[in-house]
């Protein structure tokens, strides 16, 4: 039983091809990272999985069912997404906002179920937001708002977590906190994660599968040692990338033009 399956998927936006003929399967308990340079189409790919963007060819299966035949409300019970942009127009408290995440699971038209409150409280706890429950959203800092948005997603408790730049505005401690909160959900409910991020090192620490969008419609995907190579990363990011290995940990970083051994650097020396 797979969570998410792409079959010969081609996604285009404008005159740009995000991916061509891409087939892959995401299984329960897997943690996938979606990597690629700015504007390559990471968000578009995530939106396609939510039927917010129509693929030009191929098929998407969510919970073994074609996305086209899935009702939006059914989809929201199974698949949740953290969007990149903010969402707060009217005044609202943190707790009210997190409770909104329970919308797909509402049982009664007007009354709340106590379980919704339990989910919301647990989500607040796991991101250290309990003290903020009654605070107004517009008094929060950028990082705190991002944690509220994440708590809302945790309260939704989907099986597939799509995250668009989850570490935006988050300091290191909360990046770790977020990842361990997700980890817990994965264990408890055999969920899976697909996160678009520009932070290769965060992805490498947390994820076990990687999708690298190269920008010309070609895609590399697989395990860390297959995808996160200096060659593939350099091609994907248009910039000379290096890999530093210490024990079983790898650190990825861009070479500066002036560093010896870098292609552009040696040109500069000549």
């Amino acid at each position: 039983m797979s969570c998410l399956e792409l079959r010969s998927l081609t996604i285009e936006i404008g005159n740009k091809t995000v991916c061509r003929d891409l087939s892959l399967t995401i299984n329960p308990n897997e943690r996938w990272a979606l990597l690629g340079k700015n504007g390559v189409g990471k968000t578009t790919l995530l939106h396609s999985l939510l039927a917010l963007h129509q693929p030009s060819a191929g098929e998407i299966l969510v919970n073994n069912k074609s996305l086209r035949n899935t009702k939006r409300q059914e989809l929201a019970k199974y698949l949740g997404i953290l969007f990149q942009e903010g969402m707060h127009a009217m005044p609202s408290t943190v707790l009210e906002t997190v409770l909104i995440g329970r919308h797909p699971h509402a049982h009664s038209l007007l009354l709340d179920h106590p379980r919704d409150m339990e989910f919301a409280q647990a989500a607040l706890r796991s991101l250290d937001l309990e003290a903020f429950a009654q605070r107004q959203i517009d008094t929060l800092s950028g990082g705190e708002k991002q944690r509220v948005a994440l708590a809302m997603l945790l309260a939704q408790a989907p099986t597939v977590y799509l995250l668009d730049e989850p570490s935006n505005h988050l300091d290191l401690a909360f990046q770790v906190k977020l990842l361990s909160a997700l980890e817990q959900q994965l264990h408890q409910q055999s969920a899976c994660v697909l996160m678009a991020t520009h932070d290769i090192n965060l992805a490498a620490r947390f994820c076990d599968r990687f999708i690298l969008l190269l920008g010309d419609g070609n895609v590399v995907f697989g395990k860390q040692d297959e995808v996160l190579t200096e060659t593939a990363l350099s091609a994907a990011y248009d910039c000379e990338m290096r890999k530093l290995t210490a024990g079983n940990m790898h650190l990825y970083y861009p070479a500066l033009p002036t560093e010896p051994g870098s292609a552009s650097g040696s040109q500069a020396l000549i």
């Binding site: 917010l52 929201a76 969007f83 942009e85 609202s92």
Partner: peptide, 14 residues
């Protein structure tokens, strides 16, 4: 839900 934005609302099944 809708008052929090169209994307959020769509993501939550509306």
């Amino acid at each position: 839900v809708l008052i929090r934005g169209e994307l959020v609302a769509t993501g939550l099944g509306i």
